[in-house]
Design a protein around this nucleic acid. Structure first.
Length: 264
DNA sequence: ATGGTAGCGTAGCTA
């Protein structure tokens, strides 16, 4: 089973790149974030024509939006609202084999890394606290689960281009990393990419639009993640971070797809 | 220390 997660930053604007991705890599399941489209306007037909006839999308006007597109049947589709907001930041579904899939778009958190001065950062931290409580409350600890998405946190030193220079930059602050760690422990999540790539190796999935030459300066961060629960760890076959997609132009997403293969 | 770009939707918010 091949699963991809990608923050597409407008699925309508970049539908051609989504189709290129599915043509080139043929994932069984494609999870998108920042689709930025209401459900009625989601380009489902184009994906169904490629075999992705199973879909669960949850979008809103202008912001956020998450989607699961699948060639495999989806059941028990749903999603949760977090922090008493209507934001479309989570969808879930069950895949064949009883695998529970969660697709998240965690708030970015704004610029000022102080929850007392910055409502957006306060929201992000609350969201993480709710995710930890949710992980703690998950029933059936033996259930195979996959969590993907733009989690907007780069937890390890080598998940950013400069640990020292980003310590006070939202996405890499100690408080966020601590809360993400708590969330991982609560749900017994395993980082499926770092399962293969040692923590001493740098890896990024996002490069800002605000730098002239993203590839040369390479000031990236690993914001996009795929986690699995322990029953799936022995089934992990490998991962791919599609760095080349950052150059799919002339107007690429600032995030690239992350993919894992599972022997299930 | 600052400003840099992008999408949506057409001003200003969000990233």
């Amino acid at each position: 089973m091949r699963i991809v997660t990608w923050n597409i930053n407008s699925v309508r604007l970049r539908l051609d790149m989504v189709l290129r991705l599915v043509d080139d890599y043929g994932p069984d399941v494609l999870c998108l974030q920042e689709t930025k489209v209401v459900d009625d306007a989601f380009p489902l037909k184009e994906l169904a024509a490629r075999g992705y006839v199973h879909a669960h999308v949850r979008g809103m006007k202008s912001y956020n939006g998450v989607a699961i597109l699948s060639r495999l049947p989806l059941s028990a589709t749903g999603g949760t609202l977090w922090c008493e907001r209507q934001d479309c930041r989570h969808v879930q579904a069950e895949l064949p084999g009883g695998i529970e899939l969660h697709n998240f778009y965690i708030p970015a958190g704004g610029d000022i890394p102080d929850p007392d001065l910055n409502d957006k950062f306060r929201h992000k931290l609350r969201f993480l606290d709710e995710l930890a409580a949710w992980g703690e409350a998950l029933e059936d600890r033996q259930k195979p689960r996959i969590l993907v998405g733009d989690l907007n946190i780069a937890p390890l030193e080598n998940d950013v281009w400069s640990h020292r220079q980003l310590l006070n930059v939202i996405s890499h602050t100690p408080i966020e990393v601590e809360k993400m760690d708590a969330m991982m422990r609560a749900g017994e999540w395993v980082d499926a990419v770092r399962h293969f790539l040692p923590a001493t190796e740098k890896l990024y999935t996002w490069w800002s639009y605000r730098s002239a030459d993203w590839g040369l300066s390479d000031r990236g961060r690993r914001l996009d993640h795929i986690w699995v629960t322990p029953p799936l760890v022995p089934h992990l076959l490998g991962y791919t971070v599609m760095r080349e997609a950052r150059g799919w132009g002339p107007k690429p997403s600032d995030h690239v797809p992350v993919m894992i293969d599972l022997a299930v």
